[in-house]
Structure formats: C-alpha cells, structure tokens
Nucleic acid binder design. Structure first.
Lengths: 234, 234
DNA sequence: TGAGTCACATACCGTTGGTACGTACTCAGA
DNA sequence: TCTGAGTACGTACCAACGGTATGTGACTCA
C-alpha cells in the first residue's frame, strides 16, 4: 500500500523542484501518516505501537523520529488529517443551501455522517482529548469543524433577526456542537443508525423550531450585561 | 493521607466482623483508589505509573494486583467513584425543586458545577472514553449522571403535555446531555467561568423557552413513524 | 572534489504494565 | 494444639514499549 526506502534510479535531466530527496522524504512521511491513521483508527492510540507503524510503512524508527518528534506528534498529524477531511465533507454537504434553517439541517445531516466514520470516532472523539489534552483538542476543533458550525449557527441566529454578541454566539455554538457530537455518537453506536439519525434530526429540528417560534414572537436573546432587567430572580 | 501496611497491635477482645484481615484489606484497597484518584486527576491516566500509585499508598504492586486485575480496572474504580459523587451532587442540587422547568435549571446549574471539578474533567471527560473504550464509558454514564438527566428531561417533556415514546426521550436526553457536557467543558476552561456559566444558563434557558412556546402552541413532538404527515420539507 | 547536510538505519536504554512465586498471617476443623 | 487451605500481600523478574544516540550512505553545492 505504501512505497518506501528503495533505491531511486538517477535521472540526469529535469532536476525539478522540490528536489528528489525532499520529495522522496515527503512520500515517506505520508506513508507514515497513512499507516498510522489506519492503525490508530482500528486499534486506538494506546494499543498501537511505533514498531507496528514503522513496519507497516516499511521504514525504521529512525525515519519516524526524523519526521516527527514522537508518537504524540504523529497522532496529531493523523488527527489533523481526519479533522480536515471531516470539515471538507461537511462543507460539501452545505453547498448550495442558502436558507439558514435548511443550511443547519444539511449541516446536521453531514455531521451525522461524518461522526459515523470509525476513524473519526476513534481518533477524534475517543482518543483525541486524552492524547492531545483538552486544550490542544479544543484548539484543533476550533480551527476545523467547530469553525464551520459557528458559521451555521451565526446564520441561523441572525436570520432570526437577533443581534447577539460574539460571546453568546460562541456559547450557542458550543451547545449545538456538543449536542450534535453526543447525538452523533449515539447514532453511530446504535443498532439501527438510520432510524437513530432520523430521530436526532427530528429532535434537533424540533428544538430549532422552538427557536424560530421565539424569533417570530420577537423574543430577544438574553445577554449577561443586561441580565438584571427582566429575569425572574433565577 | 492514607494508612497502609504497618503492623496492627493484637486485640484479644472484640474480634469483630468483618475480621481484622478483611477490614485491613479493604482499607488497603481504599488507599489504592484514593491515591490513584488523586494522581489520575492531576496527571492523567497515561502519565501516571503504577509505581507512583503503590508508592503513594505505601504498598507494592503485589497488593495492587491482588485487588485489581490491572491498571485499567483501577482506573475504572476511580471513574465509578467520581461519577457516583457527581450523580449525588447533581441530585442534591435538584432537591426541593418541583416544577420541571425549574428542576431543569437547577440540574443544569449543578451539572455545570460538577463539570468544573478537575477530577471529573480529567478522569471522566478527558481520559474516560479512551481508557474504557466508548462502549464501557457509555454504560457507566447511563447508570449515573445520564440516568439523572433522563428523568429531568422526561419531567420537562411530559410537563409540556407531550406524549413521547421512550426512544425520542433518549434522543432528547442525549442531545441535552451532550450540550451540557460540551458547554460545561467550555465553562471550565474559560477565563471567567462564572460569566461563562451564566451565558450557558441563559442560552439553554432560551432553548427551553423555545420548547415551552411550542408546548403552549400545542405543537407535537414528531416521531419516526408518522414523520410523513405534516412536515414542511424545510 | 570534498565538506556539509539530509534522510534515514542500527543499536541501545530506562521505564512501564504485568506475572510468577514466595511468605506471613488467619481461621476452620480434626 | 496442630494442620491445611485460603487470604493478603511482598519480591524478583520479564517482555514490550517509547525514546535516544550514533552511524552511514546518498545527495547537494560551493
């Protein structure tokens, strides 16, 4: 599945960028990441040894430690790759939708698909927080899938003709993101994922409908600074 | 902080249950769990070695492997302990509230408190899924905190005079549980947890208000089987 | 052409989780 | 009182792991 450290025939002409050595090196690096992704996704991080990875990529640990600072760094590369794929997949599902509410629905559907991929579940959801630590995990999230969800939520909330500060937007997004992750995970581990997905879509659709009805009624989104005006002592 | 394998003076009288050895043994086990909890919470699972734990408990690995089948089993004991504390804490916060909507609010508040405890964050949220695997993690969850949330959501939804099947209840609970976990985590890692908590309470309160308005309007909760009747494809 | 660098390979190390086995102690029953 | 079984550990050890130090050949470029 992956090439590696075999000899390369000398080609006198066309010594093109980015230099044969560098390009060869990048293929080794890619092989490492690909094999690692497969093993991490199948067995999980702790159960996957570096020996397995370098054997699969047909190199030695010297090569691995030349390209990565360690096991965790390699995991992070795999993690980024998977998250990036997920982001692209979700954004592809969003394409063409203009209406914010439909966009949200489409995004949810795409997200539920992504979350059912074993690699995403294992690497991102299961092992991600533990291996990277929650801080780094969140940083990655915020740059990829979370960023996408922010824009969807922003579109939905501004469509409700609410003006909300950025902090509340983040809060709402975090809530929806968590809801979708958790629900998605339950879908993925369900006996009947298809029906479970439908249920999740209905439930979230129902919640969105509730928000829409508040929007129609002109109910404003509360904010911390003017929270003292009309709140019932809660 | 913990006693351990020192000699115990012989007491001729009162050879009471459950036998000196057994009771001594249970204290060793407890010491192991307590020390492990502290270390797992501080450093995380992978960074904590068994040598550290047994040193802290002033015993040896022989004792550890007598009481637990391995590192993972010890972690699971710690995990259960923490989750149990969390459940009790949340239920205590619920006490006295009769109105379902206020009950939900109180539950949310208690949950946000729990989620800010470092031990809960590290052991349950961060390392839990990776160490136990998602299946076992979910099983534990469903027996403790999740079970509590189910009852709150049930109360809220039935108060809305909706009759919902159990599956949809589970789905809604999963959604709210995920939302609360994620939001709680963002609260815990915030620069200003107090304000962040207020924002989360407001946001979720707003979402609940949306549901309430649907309830007032008599909008039914959809279900998979009769989904084709009145849904406006958008 | 030779010094330097890159991209690895090889050999090795300390730590780790786990195991095998020994031992002190308790206690029921002969 | 003796004994044998079982409990609750301690001791010694192991294989596997992540990581490091060092070597080396291919390649580049002044």
């Amino acid at each position: 599945m992956t090439n590696a450290s075999k000899l390369i025939p000398k080609v006198p002409g066309v010594p093109r960028v980015p230099s044969r050595r560098a390009q060869f090196s990048s293929s080794t690096k890619r092989a490492l990441v690909e094999v690692a992704e497969e093993l991490f996704a199948e067995q999980g991080y702790p159960a996957t040894s570096l020996d397995q990875i370098v054997a699969g990529a047909e190199v030695t640990k010297g090569a691995l430690y030349h390209h990565f600072s360690g096991k965790q760094a390699l995991f992070e590369a795999v993690f980024e790759r998977i998250e990036n794929e997920a982001r692209k997949s979700i954004q592809a599902g969003l394409k063409g939708e203009r209406d914010p509410w439909r966009k949200a629905q489409a995004g949810l559907r795409a997200f539920l698909d992504v979350v059912q991929e074993p690699g995403y579940r294992r690497v991102v959801i299961q092992d991600g927080p533990s291996v990277l630590g929650y801080e780094r995990f969140r940083e990655h999230e915020e740059r990829s899938t979370f960023a996408t969800v922010v824009e969807i939520v922003r579109a939905v909330l501004t469509a409700g003709e609410w003006d909300l500060d950025e902090e509340m937007l983040q809060t709402f997004t975090r809530i929806f993101f968590g809801a979708m992750s958790s629900a998605g995970e339950s879908v993925a581990s369900s006996d009947d994922p298809a029906t479970a997905a439908v249920r999740v879509e209905m439930a979230i659709g129902f919640i969105l409908a509730g928000l829409q009805s508040l929007a129609d009624a002109g109910v404003p989104i509360p904010a911390p600074q003017d929270a003292d005006t009309g709140t019932d002592e809660g």
